[in-house]
Design a protein around this nucleic acid. Structure first.
Lengths: 209, 209
DNA sequence: TTGACATATGACACAGTGTCATATATTATT
DNA sequence: AATAATATATGACACTGTGTCATATGTCAA
């Protein structure tokens, strides 16, 4: 988390800095991004930077989480829209990410995030559903999913389903980015994954051994 | 890929260098690892290093792929053992990785790989099944799975299943490492994921809309 | 006006990377 | 055996980057 000093800053200066950071992290992936560049663009001194942030991580994840906030709230909307159908909502959320990847700037930023960062980035993405697993909203949505559509017996399993789909979704984004798939190919791929997940990959005729 | 010069090296020297690299990448994650440390331990000059390798990446992924080779061949054995039952084989393969995570040295190396690296690392892990998708062996194994147990209609879907399970498996390793789960908890979690995947997460009573 | 506190600054010590001119082996050719 | 041609080795060096710190400058309350 940025230090208090950062939040005390006049809004304009704060935005200037964030904008500069965004530019730098769009230009190159995290590990190549240089603080020197950021402070230069933002027209602040190097020393000041360290008054605001612990280090590069601190700034980066603040920025990333901020960008993902929108996705979080959007997912709520989608779940409502699809009457609690998890998979349908997810497919549309994935579409949203793919769309974001169409704006050239956002595209590059996300690409840098997806390809060159790590467990922490993945966690940030996964945290989109964190809210559901803790909050009131979860009960509402959870119940809706639970009773109507899903093949689950305990809350633990629902949590697992979230884990599985987020792993697949994240993977799908990486695949698209790494292999340069088109939006259509990527969403096709995601839909197929979701369909397999929906009905299971084992033939139901053959039962468990 | 390391340069030819590296492969021309006397075996002892080559191993010395690999050993030194392994030590460094066990000590700290990739981005903190320093070439200076490696050449010091290996008792070669800095210049020599760049005769052998393009850069740090080059060495690192050579080392990582090498370590994963074992897993690749092991997976063949497991598939045979479980008569082509993909999921059962996978569960045992996951066990193998978890076991590797018990040797303190290997544990730290893998931890550094899982937490601090990226798409390329994930690709390396996923490449465990690459062989199956290209080679002769695939046909053997593929057919076995295809006809007996899985609910798939085209080869494309089998490829997808590999993608899905590898995403989940990789995720499971990261989860274990990041949250410090015990081997038992991790494998329990993986089994649950696999079970959900097997039978699908949607209730079969309610059919597709 | 003063003092206390918050913020700003850039020079600096340190650590790391990749390169290059030069030195030293090794191997091939006469 | 002498020489040429080729491959390998070396570490100093130019460069880029980080995080810190002593010092300067603002701000606000008493």
């Amino acid at each position: 988390m940025p230090k208090q000093t950062f939040f005390n800053l006049p809004e304009q200066k704060r935005n200037m800095l964030l904008k500069a950071a965004e530019m730098e992290f769009t230009r190159v992936p995290f590990f190549e991004a240089s603080i020197a560049n950021i402070v230069k663009t933002a027209a602040i001194s190097r020393g000041s930077f360290y008054q605001y942030f612990e280090d590069k991580d601190d700034l980066y994840f603040y920025l990333l989480e901020d960008k993902l906030k929108m996705a979080k709230t959007y997912f709520s909307v989608l779940l409502e829209k699809h009457q609690g159908d998890l998979i349908e909502a997810l497919i549309e959320l994935q579409n949203f990410f793919l769309l974001a990847l169409s704006d050239e700037e956002e595209k590059q930023f996300l690409k840098n995030a997806l390809l060159y960062t790590t467990h922490r980035v993945e966690s940030s993405f996964a945290s989109i559903w964190d809210t559901y697993l803790e909050q009131e909203e979860f009960k509402k949505v959870g119940k809706l999913i639970d009773q109507d559509l899903l093949n689950i017996h305990a809350e633990k399993e629902l949590l697992h389903i979230f884990k599985i789909v987020s792993a697949i979704a994240f993977n799908n984004l990486i695949e698209k980015t790494a292999k340069g798939l088109s939006d259509e190919e990527a969403i096709e791929s995601f839909k197929l994954s979701m369909s397999l997940l929906k009905h299971g990959i084992y033939n139901s005729e053959v039962q468990d051994k």
